[in-house]
């Protein structure tokens, strides 16, 4: 039964993938990419990776689509027909694929409980998490505690990417007078968006603080938080959104999240432990772990939300036609 669901989802992914290659309208391709992400999120649920599915659904199907749409709006909607025949790429791809498939023949079977991947650190994580960390969600305990260094690195990468986008596109603090002429038509959307906006933020907080017990955590929460503001900006105009959350503040927040994360690590050192050792943060190790995980997840959430909003504002404050179209003279 599970194989059946698996095969159907993989088949749908293949169909979507081929459609993406063939279609020339980039808007349609963007939508298909979003569908592709949604199908892979479903597949992740079937494969027991609920945390990953939540992240993929929020990022792949949500934020990525909006960024792609913004890019398509700034560039061309239709892809030109390639000037040369694509036989060589097809050959390269077929050869690479064949080599990879040959490589999989030595891999353990799908779902094999005795595969080498499952025999080294993973059983320790699953067995030790209840006593050492005291949180039911093993993914959170590995992410935030056992492999806190990795996660600190990832958060720094995200922060750096945010800085990179800022350097390339910039967030311009110009006066926005524009109100689209058909703005009144958005009234239904605006009412519903206003209804959803607080709920989305509330859900983000739930995902953040419930991440120890169920699927969730800082990464997902940050993305959902940003989605709330993106929805607000889409329906109420960029100017209003920037008044709610000024771009200058976003820069500070993005840095503050990384700083909070590292500060927790250094606090552990000051209290006599190692870098990112949470056991010393409170009187007994387990509540120290709880506190540490909560703090660094909050840091991750703040950075992710701020960086995504920086990226979003960077894209949508651009005008088609280039930088000189930006001062409304």
């Amino acid at each position: 039964m599970q194989h059946l669901v698996d095969i159907v989802l993989l088949g749908l992914l293949m169909i979507t993938g081929f459609a993406i290659v063939r279609m020339r309208s980039l808007l349609a391709v963007t939508m298909l990419t979003s569908i592709y992400s949604l199908f892979s999120a479903l597949l992740f649920v079937v494969l027991d990776a609920v945390d990953v599915a939540l992240t993929e659904a929020a990022i792949g199907a949500g934020i990525s689509t909006i960024l792609l749409l913004a890019t398509v709006a700034l560039t061309t909607e239709y892809e030109k027909v390639p000037s040369h025949r694509s036989l060589l790429p097809l050959l390269v791809v077929t050869l690479t694929g064949a080599a990879l498939i040959y490589g999989t023949l030595d891999m353990p079977h799908y779902g094999d409980p005795n595969a080498p991947v499952h025999r080294h650190v993973a059983p320790d994580y699953i067995e030790d998490t209840p006593e050492e960390i005291g949180v039911p969600n093993v993914v959170t305990s590995v992410l935030a505690s056992y492999r806190g260094y990795d996660t600190l690195g990832e958060v720094t990468v995200i922060f750096t990417a945010g800085v990179g986008v800022l350097a390339l596109l910039g967030v311009h603090l110009r006066k926005r007078t524009e109100q689209p002429s058909d703005y009144h038509k958005l009234v239904v959307l605006r009412v519903i968006a206003k209804l959803f906006f607080p709920l989305i933020l509330l859900f983000a907080l739930y995902v953040l603080f419930h991440g120890d017990y169920g699927p969730g955590g800082g990464f997902q929460a940050g993305v959902i938080f940003a989605t709330g503001f993106v929805l607000y900006a889409l329906t109420h105009g960029l100017g209003n959104a920037e008044r709610v959350i000024p771009p200058a503040l976003l820069g500070i927040l993005a840095a503050a999240g990384v700083l909070l994360y590292s500060a927790v690590g250094i606090e552990g050192m000051l209290l006599g432990g190692k870098f990112l050792e949470y056991n010393v943060l409170a009187d007994d190790p387990v509540s120290g772990q709880h506190l540490g995980i909560l703090l660094i997840e909050t840091g991750v959430g703040i950075t992710v939300a701020a960086v995504i909003l920086i990226i979003y504002f960077g894209f949508v404050s651009r005008r088609p036609g280039g930088a000189d179209a930006q001062d409304p003279s």
Binding site: V188, L189, I192, L195, F196, L199
Partner: peptide, 11 residues
């Protein structure tokens, strides 16, 4: 959420 978002999206 479905009851609110579905019709809004279609609209």
């Amino acid at each position: 959420f479905m009851v609110f978002s579905g019709p809004t999206a279609v609209h």
